[in-house]
Design a protein around this nucleic acid. Structure first.
Lengths: 145, 145
DNA sequence: CATTGACATGAAGTTAGGTTTAGGTGTTAC
DNA sequence: GTAACACCTAAACCTAACTTCATGTCAATG
């Protein structure tokens, strides 16, 4: 059993955030001893799932729904499975987009290295994309597709 | 040359967003014909960079700074190069985190598939992580590291 | 020549996800 | 017995990035 301060340290989250999550119903049935929250292993696992679902782009109110399903029991296994499958697909799509962003950034790094070497962008701006070095062209193509 | 409506279609962005970006100084020196914005290839490339930098987590005010550097000329190449290198490092770190999130989601998908087959979570909750199937254990380990 | 549709403006409104503030309780240390 | 801490609440506040609103201009169409 942990206090809110200990959990705050463990997860590197402000105490105010943990209280906010609790107020939003993200720790249904959390125990209290004379008003003070007692975080058990159940709440720590909830917090791991909260961070994961948040990172997947899920809103707090929908995370609350998930936590309610957990309380409801075995009848909601299909809902919970479907939720994770949807989030998985969304994050996979997000990874593809982020890879494009990364390729654009890498291209721009090369672009400015070259501009610095040349002293200007003239040669670069007159160069057709198919005359970039092969690996740079791949970055450019992925970033612009 | 394109109107704001055409650019809105091309980039799938609301017109209000394009006007907001202009107001924030993200299209320095955009041309106007009797009050109406004329988007040239320069503004389209700016927009591509805006989307890329935004996705990398950069704030509008810092994107504005970048656009100001572009106007300033060759003396700011080092600043611009450094900006892209920093964003690149940030996005690479983000990709690692997102992969962990994805592994957690995949683990949870397996977890609920198994719970549905078992009809309950009892066996799962008593199972030590090192008794999960090998590929599941890898997901679990990466997600919890 | 009036209506439609695309453009323009400044100012106010919206939203999510917290954070801060003001005031209070309870336990341990000196 | 008082000072320092860690905890508590409700309510107000904050921020970024848009979005909506009220109002107006202008060109082409029926």
């Amino acid at each position: 059993m942990y206090t809110i301060g200990q959990v705050s340290e463990m997860f590197n989250l402000p105490i105010s955030t943990l209280r906010y999550y609790d107020k939003e119903g993200l720790f249904p049935g959390i125990e209290r001893q004379s008003g003070i929250r007692k975080f058990s292993e159940r709440e720590l696992e909830a917090l791991r799932v909260i961070e994961c679902l948040k990172k997947s782009g899920l809103e707090i109110k929908d995370i609350k729904q998930f936590m309610a399903w957990c309380v409801e029991g075995a009848s909601t296994y299909p809902n919970r499975k479907k939720l994770f499958e949807t989030r998985k697909a969304i994050v996979e799509a997000e990874m593809v987009k982020l890879q494009k962003t990364l390729d654009m950034l890498k291209f721009k790094c090369w672009y400015y290295e070259t501009a610095i070497r040349d002293g200007n962008e003239e040669r670069l701006n007159e160069m057709a994309p198919d005359r970039f070095p092969k690996e740079i062209q791949e970055l450019y193509d992925n970033a612009h597709s």
